[in-house]
Design a protein around this nucleic acid. Sequence first.
DNA 1: TATTTGCGTAACTCAGAAGTTACATATACA
DNA 2: TGTATATGTAACTTCTGAGTTACGCAAATA
Lengths: 107, 107
Amino acid sequence: MPIPTLDAFQVIGDPSRRKMLMLLSADSLTINSLADNFDMSRPAVSKHIKILQTAGFISIEDIGRERYCSLKKDGFEELQAWLEYFDAFWASKLKKLETLLNNKLPN
Amino acid sequence: MPIPTLDAFQVIGDPSRRKMLMLLSADSLTINSLADNFDMSRPAVSKHIKILQTAGFISIEDIGRERYCSLKKDGFEELQAWLEYFDAFWASKLKKLETLLNNKLPN
DNA sequence: TATTTGCGTAACTCAGAAGTTACATATACA
DNA sequence: TGTATATGTAACTTCTGAGTTACGCAAATA
């Protein structure tokens, strides 16, 4: 069976999960304190957190019966790499335009 | 009713749509020539294209009965802005670590 | 003009994802 | 030890969205 790795893009496609990441950018939070910021039930938040963890967006440290979530770089890097590919596209497009202009106006 | 603007993150959450963007990074393509690269039906591709266009990832130029798709920056910029926010997070985290280390080892 | 080609849309099916409630478990506290 | 707290999980419901087929229309072509 394939390792159940998650699609980073699909994972951040969910607005609730993005909001969770935003909240965690301000502070490390437990599942419950995270859930306070949402309308959904705590188990729903718990599931989202598991997804975010599996996809490498957060790490979790167990302290007693609490679980502290904090941001983790891995997940973000995958997105970054993808965007950088297209950055290169725009850059090369700009370069082609330059060349074109230079050839059209060789004065 | 709310303006049917699309969530850029949700839009690129779909692997097929990301593949379309990749294909368009190599060349401008018509709907049909795009569809050749996929297992799904042409109407399915057509829908994806409409979504990508609405979200600002591509622009479409009608030439006769054909529609040429090419990449458009707008959609990407929204993603970039989001990632940059978290870039700042990592940067500030690094800075805090530096400060911490400097205080702990003030020799 | 008749036919083919390139495409959009409507109506439908279906799977998956996100939510729920109910329950189980482990830790902290009285 | 008994209770409250923090959490995970299973089972279920519901809804969205991605796919399909069938159809219509405009442009190209014979």
